[in-house]
Amino acid sequence: MNEPRRSRQVNEALRAKLAANETAYGLWVTSEASAVTEIAGALGLDWICVDMEHGYLDYRAIQGHVTAARGTDLTVLVRPPSQELEPIKRALDVGAHGVIVPLVNTGDEVRAVSQHVYYPPLGRRGIGGERSVTWGLDLTRYVRGANQDLLFVPMIETQTAYDNLDDILSVSEIDAVFLGPADMSASRGAVGEWEGPGVAEINLDILARARERGISAGIVARSTYEAIARRDQGFGMVSLGSDLGLMIRQIGSMTSALGRDNLVHSWF
Rank of each mutant, 00 (worst) to 15 (best):
G95V: 12
V78Y: 13
D73L: 01
R230M: 05
R249V: 06
L27Y: 02
L207I: 08
N105I: 10
A91L: 10
P87I: 05
S223D: 11
T37I: 14
E226W: 14
D163P: 07
G95Y: 06
L57A: 06
I88V: 06
L246P: 01
A68V: 05
Y118V: 12
N203K: 11
S172Q: 09
E212P: 10
V264W: 06
D205E: 15
F178Q: 14
V76M: 11
R125I: 00
D261A: 15
D51S: 03
P181T: 03
A257G: 07
P197S: 05
G198D: 08
A35S: 12
A227T: 06
G26M: 09
L85C: 12
T106W: 11
S172T: 10
E157M: 07
R8L: 03
G214S: 05
P197L: 01
L18E: 01
M184D: 04
L207V: 06
M52A: 06
L258C: 12
P87D: 07
A61M: 01
L103K: 15
G198H: 05
L27F: 07
R125Q: 04
Q148D: 15
R188A: 15
S31G: 00
T30E: 15
E38W: 07
R141C: 02
A217T: 14
P4C: 02
L137V: 11
E193P: 00
K89V: 13
A16L: 05
A24R: 14
A210R: 08
G126E: 07
A221G: 15
M184H: 11
I48T: 14
C49G: 11
G145F: 03
T23R: 12
R90A: 07
F235P: 06
R144F: 01
P80I: 11
E212W: 04
T75F: 07
I100G: 04
A161Y: 02
G126Q: 05
T160M: 12
G71E: 03
I156P: 06
T30N: 14
V110M: 00
E3A: 08
M1K: 04
P80N: 09
G180M: 08
Q115Y: 10
L14C: 02
E3L: 06
M254T: 14
S114H: 07
R8S: 03
A68W: 07
E193I: 10
G196K: 00
L240R: 09
G145R: 12
V143C: 01
L18R: 03
K89Y: 13
V143Y: 01
P120M: 04
Q83Y: 01
G136Y: 00
A186Q: 13
A190F: 14
R131W: 15
Q233D: 14
I168D: 02
I228R: 13
I251T: 07
R70H: 09
L27S: 02
R70L: 11
D175L: 05
L207G: 05
G126W: 11
R230D: 08
R79E: 07
F235W: 02
L103Q: 15
E157A: 10
M155T: 13
E130M: 14
D175F: 00
I168S: 00
T255F: 10
S34K: 08
G192C: 00
Q63K: 13
R213F: 13
